[in-house]
Design a protein around this nucleic acid. Structure first.
Length: 260
DNA sequence: ATGCCGGGCGAAGCCCGA
């Protein structure tokens, strides 16, 4: 079972790259972020033609998340419980049922939080607190669980090309990293780091100037696993080649393989 | 990189992202 996550930065701008990825890599499940369109504007037909079921939580202009799956999607939840006043579409969750098992998967677009002296940073931290509360509930089910998405969190110094340059950024502030660590401390595993210790493994490179050619990236797209999923983790991979295509997203997909 | 890209909106130039 291959599960991937990708911030596409507009699904309509990225449709050709997305279809190519689904054909070439054929993930069983793909979590998308920043689809940047309403549900009715999501390019369903071409994706369904490749054998995927689709659930979206869209929004006009900004944000928006989706789950694509070769298996049926059930018990779909949009938004975090207790956070109903949030008007931004940043969370969708579903149960994926295979012949032999069931697994819960979420697609997460965690707020950026910059600038840190604006209301955007407390919004980020509040959102993380809601996510943690919900993750704690889900973990009590003791089932395979994958919380995948753009977390907008650089977990450690080894996950950024220049830690000094990012020291005051909302993605790397100690308070941000502590909140992410609190999430992990519930019993979640960072799937990529459980498999790969290599430095300079990034999932985002700024569009501007030399970021991509000089590998000035950050690792902010993560798949967090419950113990029941982590026990079945075989490997993880960053699809870095996707950043070298024409009209790339500034993020690349991250995928894992589970023995399920 | 506190936006030199790129996307949305909408038809120029601003807002947003990380």
């Amino acid at each position: 079972m291959i599960i991937a996550t990708w911030n596409v930065n507009s699904v309509r701008q990225r449709i050709e790259q997305l279809l190519g990825y689904l054909r070439d890599t054929a993930p069983d499940i793909l979590c998308l972020q920043e689809i940047k369109c309403l549900d009715e504007a999501f390019p369903r037909a071409e994706i369904e033609a490749l054998g995927y079921n689709i659930e979206t939580s869209g929004q006009k202009t900004f944000n928006g998340v989706a789950i694509l799956s070769k298996y049926p999607l059930e018990d779909v939840r949009r938004g975090l419980p207790g956070n109903e006043s949030d008007e931004q579409s940043r969370y969708i969750e579903a149960v994926v049922s295979t012949k032999s098992s069931a697994m819960r998967v979420a697609s997460i677009y965690l707020p950026n939080g910059n600038p840190v002296d604006s209301e955007k940073y407390p919004y980020k931290l509040t959102w993380m607190a809601h996510l943690r509360r919900h993750a704690r509930q889900l973990l009590q089910l003791e089932e395979p669980l994958v919380l995948a998405g753009d977390y907008n969190v650089i977990p450690h110094a080894q996950d950024v090309h220049d830690p000094q340059a990012w020291a005051g950024d909302a993605l790397f502030l100690p308070q941000t990293r502590a909140a992410f660590q609190e999430l992990l401390n519930l019993g979640l595993t960072d799937a990529f780091r459980a498999c790969i210790s290599a430095e300079k493994s990034y999932t985002f490179w700024d569009y501007q100037a030399v970021a991509w050619p000089k590998n000035m990236g950050i690792r902010i797209d993560h798949l967090l696993l419950s113990p029941q999923a982590a026990d079945r983790l075989r490997c993880a991979h960053i699809d870095k080649n996707m950043r070298a295509l024409d009209k790339p997203s500034d993020h690349v997909p991250v995928r894992i393989e589970l023995d399920l």
